[in-house]
Simulated assay, not measured.
Amino acid sequence: MKIVYYTYLRDKGGAARVANLIASYLSKEPGYEFIQLVEREGVDWSKLKDASIFHLHSSKNWLEVLKKLVDFKGIVFITAHDFQVLGGGCVYPFQCFNWQKECVSCPLGFTNSKEVFAQKKKLLLKINPIFIYPSNWLKKMGSKMYPGLEHKLIYNGVELNFNPTLELFRYQRKFIILICSSLGRNEIKGSDRWPFIIESIFQEDKEIRFFLVGGEKLSFSSPEVAARVKQVPVLPHSELLNLLAQGSLLIYPARIDNFPLVILESMACGLPVVAYQVGGIGEQVIAGDCGELIAPLAEDKLIATALALLKNPVQLRKMGVQARERWQRFFRIEKMAKEYGKVYVQN
């Protein structure tokens, strides 16, 4: 079975990582041949010849890619890692319900959203792809927008090749981690609120340390706060996992997100999570079990919850153990890849 899979980047970002994990795992099984097309490096469309499956994961030019697939004779799968392939342009329809009206207008500023959506819909109905979603939250949206197409749920999975310590001393360190997948200010991921969150927590407990990955370079109101914060723009993936395995708590204040890999990796590393109950995050984190979920944008509650947990390292450790157990049961790479393998074979 020849499977051509398409990503915008070769190995950076969540979509490419998931795509490569699937290909890497299933390539070990007999009968699979995977070929990756990378948009940013230039695409040789002749590689589609004799392919039985085309699997689209990410693009910066969805319309052009979809146009190329209209005459493809095999089966097309599209994994919706975010909302872009479904709607009129945005990554996520934050505080917007016009996606239910075919993106007739866009409060986020995509001026041609109605036309883009109409073109996508026309192409998708011609291609007749099978949509796969990492979250039931996004699957419900896609099913409403394209009721005539097939929609499936497969949770993301991640791998961890070491056993993190789950000893109590780790959770007594009061070591908070905040991560944003992009550089610069990112309101969707909540990195614009990091300074307020950090300074508010510091005012209540000056022993807490913070490690920030991504986001814009921050400055703080006092050198005392700055001394408790370390920030780096990016980390190699292996170093990021080692960092997560040392933390006491991950705070993830995204205003909307689908099924972030960093939460799964935190769980694999035994790191409890405090986040808003938005998007698919509630399908990852069980409140009171492996972290806490806060009502959307209830920032004071988010801060108070983080402080309360850090005062109770025994509870934090229990959550860390349960987070790792939940990852082992539901979100391992083996489980995700096998489910993708099933849908490949069945179709």
Rank of each mutant, 00 (worst) to 15 (best):
I303D: 04
A298P: 00
Y340A: 06
P313K: 02
V274H: 08
E339T: 04
P296D: 03
I303L: 03
E334P: 00
I333C: 05
L316D: 09
E283Q: 09
Q277V: 00
V345Y: 12
Q284C: 06
Q328G: 11
D300I: 15
W327V: 06
L297H: 12
E339L: 12
K311F: 05
Q346W: 12
V273A: 04
Q277M: 11
R317T: 09
E299Y: 14
Q346I: 14
Q328K: 15
I281M: 05
A304T: 13
R332K: 14
T305M: 04
G288D: 11
E334K: 10
P313H: 12
K335R: 15
K318E: 12
Q346G: 02
L307D: 08
R332L: 13
I303Y: 09
E299I: 14
V321K: 10
V278A: 11
K318V: 08
F331C: 06
Q315H: 12
V343R: 10
I286P: 04
V314D: 15
Y276N: 05
Y276K: 05
R329S: 10
G279C: 04
K301Q: 13
G280I: 01
A323Q: 06
Y276R: 00
F330V: 13
E299R: 08
V273G: 02
V273I: 07
G280L: 03
K311S: 14
V314W: 14
A295W: 14
V273K: 02
W327E: 00
L297W: 11
Y340Q: 05
K335H: 07
L307H: 11
K335T: 14
Q277W: 08
M319P: 00
Q315F: 08
G291Y: 07
P313A: 11
L297D: 06
G320M: 10
Q322P: 03
L316Q: 05
G282P: 04
I281R: 04
Y344T: 05
I281N: 01
V278L: 13
P313R: 10
V285N: 07
R329Y: 03
G288R: 12
V285P: 07
G291R: 11
E299Q: 12
W327L: 06
D289A: 14
P296W: 11
E339P: 07
V314E: 15
N312D: 15
Y340I: 13
K335A: 14
I333G: 01
G279F: 02
F331W: 14
F331I: 15
G288C: 09
Q277S: 10
L297Q: 11
V273W: 01
L309E: 00
A308Y: 05
Q328V: 03
G291P: 02
D300F: 12
L307N: 10
V321E: 15
A306L: 12
K338E: 10
R324N: 07
A337Q: 05
F331A: 10
Q328W: 07
Q322A: 06
Y340K: 01
K311D: 08
E292K: 01
A298K: 13
A308D: 06
E283T: 02
G320P: 07
R329A: 03
Q284M: 15
I286N: 09
A306M: 04
Q277K: 15
V345P: 03
V274D: 01
F331H: 12
A298L: 11
A304M: 13
R329Q: 02
A275M: 03
A308F: 07
L307G: 03
G280Q: 02
L302P: 00
